[in-house]
Every structure is written in C-alpha cells, then in structure tokens.
Simulated assay, not measured.
Amino acid sequence: MASIRHEIAINASPHHVWEVIRDIGAVHERLLPGRVAGTRIEGVHRFLTFPDGHVIRELIISVDDDTRRLAYSVAEGARPRLDYHHACFEVRADADHARLIWTTDLLPDSAAPEVRIRTQYGIAEMKQAIEASGEPG
C-alpha cells in the first residue's frame, strides 16, 4: 500500500486553519476555490464537484476537534481509479504559524505517482487560499 505525506507551513493560526479544514461543506469556498466548483453534504458523505462536472463521493470518517484531525475516504469517482483510499488532515501549532499535514494511503501502488502530484499541488493551493482569507498567524 502506498502512503503519501505532505506537510506545509501556513501563515495563520492553527485555530483558523482548523476552522477551514473542518468546514466540510465549504471546500469550494474556503479550502480549494477554483479547483472545486461545489460541495454537497448528504449524511456522512461529501460530494465534491469539479469545474469539468466530475464528482467525487467521499465518506467523512472523523472530524476530531480535540486533535484537529479530519479523516475521510474517497468512495467513488477517484481519478485515477483506486481500490482503496484513506486520508487525513492534521493541523498542528509550529512556532509562529500552523502546520498542515495531509496523509493519504491508497491502492493500487501504481496510482501513487499521480496522486502524489495532485496532493502536492492541492496542499499548496490550500495554503494559498487559507493565507488569502486574511487571518494571520
């Protein structure tokens, strides 16, 4: 099983970064505006709609305010197709800023290079969106 981990420093308070991450229904507005066109919540499922109309269905596993950890799994619509997916975001305090950690476990291993590139770009876009929201570290 492939495991991908990215960490990035964000010039915002850990509290603010966590508020953005845990706002599971506003990915298109707060976390990945432009990359995600719409977000819909139905029970424990989150549906992300992309600008090309593609939809991913995710299972929200845990939103833990005490540890600032969000766990989810892509249940349907992954590109490339995945046999297994589990990911989590963690927000930590790091000196005078926040640190966002995104860990993804997936199968097949052959999908890892493409997923690694997408998550690398994705976490950089998240940093940009969170810092642009105006809440300094």
Rank of each mutant, 00 (worst) to 15 (best):
Asp23Gly: 04
Ile123Cys: 09
Thr104Asn: 05
Phe89Gln: 08
Val63Cys: 14
Gln128Trp: 05
Glu7Gln: 12
Ala26Ile: 03
Glu90Lys: 11
Val27Ile: 12
Gly53Arg: 15
Pro80Asn: 06
Asp105Met: 11
Glu125Asp: 12
Asp94Ile: 13
Phe89Gly: 06
Ile4Asn: 10
Leu82Pro: 10
Gly25Ser: 08
Ala12Ser: 15
Trp18Gln: 03
Ile10Cys: 07
Ser73His: 08
Ala78Tyr: 03
Ala78Trp: 01
Ser62Ala: 13
Glu19Arg: 14
Arg79Leu: 15
Gly53Leu: 11
Ser133Glu: 12
Arg46Met: 09
Ile130Phe: 09
Ser110Phe: 01
Ile56Pro: 01
Phe50Pro: 13
Arg81Cys: 06
Arg68Trp: 12
Ala71Leu: 05
Glu131Asp: 09
Glu131Gly: 04
Ala124Phe: 01
Arg69Ser: 12
Ala98Cys: 13
Ile101Gln: 03
Phe47Gly: 00
Glu125Gly: 08
Phe89Trp: 05
Thr39Trp: 03
Ile60Asn: 03
Arg68Glu: 07
Ser62Val: 04
Val91Arg: 07
Thr119Ile: 13
Arg79Ser: 13
His85Met: 09
Glu114Arg: 11
Leu82Arg: 07
Gln120Glu: 14
Arg118Asn: 08
Gly137Phe: 13
Leu31Trp: 00
His15Leu: 12
Ser13Thr: 15
Glu29Tyr: 01
Val74Tyr: 09
Ile117His: 03
Leu106Ser: 11
Pro136Thr: 06
Arg46Cys: 02
Leu32Gly: 04
Ala129Thr: 14
Ala2Lys: 10
Trp18Thr: 02
Leu82Ala: 05
Thr39Gly: 00
His86Val: 15
Arg118Cys: 04
Leu48Asp: 14
Glu29Arg: 10
Gly53Pro: 13
Pro136His: 15
Glu125Gln: 15
Ala111His: 06
Tyr72Val: 11
Asp96Thr: 07
Ala129Trp: 06
Met126Phe: 03
Ala26Ser: 15
Ala37Arg: 11
Pro108Leu: 05
Pro136Ser: 03
Val17Ala: 15
Gly134Arg: 11
Pro113Phe: 06
His85Phe: 08
Arg5Ala: 09
Val115Cys: 04
Ala2Gln: 07
Arg22Ala: 10
Thr67Ala: 15
Glu131Thr: 05
His54Leu: 01
Arg118Val: 11
Asp94Ala: 14
Ser110Gln: 14
Ala129Cys: 07
Asp109Glu: 15
Glu135Cys: 03
Leu82Trp: 03
Leu31Ser: 02
Glu7Trp: 01
Arg79Ala: 08
Ala87Arg: 03
Glu42Gly: 02
Pro14Gly: 03
His16Pro: 03
Ala129Lys: 07
Ala2Glu: 07
Ala75Thr: 10
Met1Asn: 13
Thr119Cys: 04
Asp65Tyr: 01
Ala9Tyr: 09
Ser3Cys: 14
Leu31Gln: 04
Asp109Trp: 04
Thr67Asp: 10
Asp96Gly: 05
Tyr72Asn: 07
Ile60Gln: 00
Tyr84Ala: 12
Thr103Asn: 09
Asp66Pro: 05
His6Asn: 14
